[in-house]
C-alpha cells in the first residue's frame, strides 16, 4: 500500500477515535431537580446516601441530590462543549455515542391503558400485555412507537409526542367508529419491590397521568 495513503488513513482513524472517544465517555446525563422528585430516583438517592454514609462519607439524601444535580450539570456542559464542533456532523449523519442501556431499571413502571370514549362512557380497549384488551397491540408495541411513551417515570408531565400519540389513537378509533368522541391514554404506575424487600409492602398502583386526545381536550 502506498505509504502516504496508509499515513492518511491512520491519521483519519486517530481523529475518529479521538472524537468518538470523547463522545463515549460515560458522563451521566444532566439531572434536573424535578427528576429527583420521582420515587425511583428518590429511593436511589436515599440508598446511595446511606451507602456513602456507611463508608465514612456522611451525607443526607437532599445534599447528595443537590451534588448530583450540580456535578451532572457541570460534566454534561463540559461534555457538550467538547463535542460542539462535531455537533453538525453527528446531527446530519445520526452517528454518535451514548450507551446507558438499562442504566436505571424502573421499579415503578407504567402500564399503558387506552380507553375509548363514546357518549361520555369509557370503554377500556387496550392494556399492555393483557390478552383480552389488545386493540392496536402490534403498532403500540413497535419499538419506535414505544419510544414515544416509555420512561414515564423519568418525566413529570406527558411529552408533546405522547399527546400526539393520543390524537393518533383517536383517529384510529374513529376510523372504525365515527361516534367515538376521543380516547384516554392512562399510565398506571405499578410498583415492583424486589422479593427481598417485600416485607415492607408491595405498594399500590396509581395513575401517573392521563392523556386526553384532541376530541376530549
Amino acid at each position: 500500500m502506498n505509504r502516504t495513503r496508509a499515513q492518511l488513513r491512520a491519521a483519519a482513524i486517530t481523529l475518529v477515535l479521538l472524537v468518538h472517544g470523547i463522545a463515549v465517555l460515560p458522563v451521566p446525563h444532566v439531572v434536573r431537580p424535578h427528576e429527583l422528585d420521582d420515587p425511583v430516583a428518590r429511593a436511589e438517592v436515599t440508598r446511595w446516601a446511606e451507602r456513602l454514609t456507611g463508608v465514612g462519607y456522611p451525607i443526607s439524601p437532599d445534599e447528595l441530590g443537590a451534588e448530583v444535580v450540580r456535578w451532572s450539570t457541570r460534566l454534561g456542559r463540559a461534555h457538550r462543549t467538547a463535542l460542539l464542533p462535531m455537533r453538525p456532523w453527528f446531527r446530519w449523519t445520526g452517528t454518535g455515542q451514548g450507551w446507558a442501556l438499562f442504566a436505571n431499571p424502573d421499579t415503578h413502571p407504567s402500564r399503558m391503558e387506552v380507553a375509548v370514549v363514546r357518549g361520555g362512557q369509557e370503554q377500556l380497549v387496550y392494556r399492555r400485555l393483557d390478552p383480552d384488551l389488545g386493540w392496536l397491540r402490534d403498532p403500540l408495541a413497535y419499538r419506535r412507537v414505544r419510544g414515544v411513551y416509555d420512561a414515564t417515570s423519568a418525566r413529570h408531565r406527558p411529552t408533546a409526542a405522547s399527546r400526539r400519540l393520543a390524537d393518533w389513537l383517536e383517529d384510529e378509533a374513529r376510523r372504525s367508529d365515527p361516534t367515538v368522541e376521543g380516547v384516554l391514554v392512562r399510565f398506571v404506575a405499578t410498583p415492583h419491590p424486589l422479593p427481598s424487600a417485600r416485607r415492607r409492602g408491595r405498594g399500590s398502583s396509581k395513575v401517573r397521568y392521563t392523556l386526553r386526545s384532541k376530541g376530549l381536550r
Binding site: P26, P28, E44, R47, W48, R51, W99, A100, F102, A103, N104, P105, D106, T107, P109, S110, R111, M112, R128, L129, R146, Y149, D150, A151, T190, H192, L194, P195, S196, A197
Partner: peptide, 25 residues
Amino acid sequence: QKYAQQWWPWGDFGALWVIWQDWPM
C-alpha cells in the same frame, strides 16, 4: 453507567427481575 443499585450486590442484583416487569419493554 448502570448507576442503579439493583445492578450491584447491595441492590440484591435485582435489576433483571425489575426489567422483566417494566411494562413498556
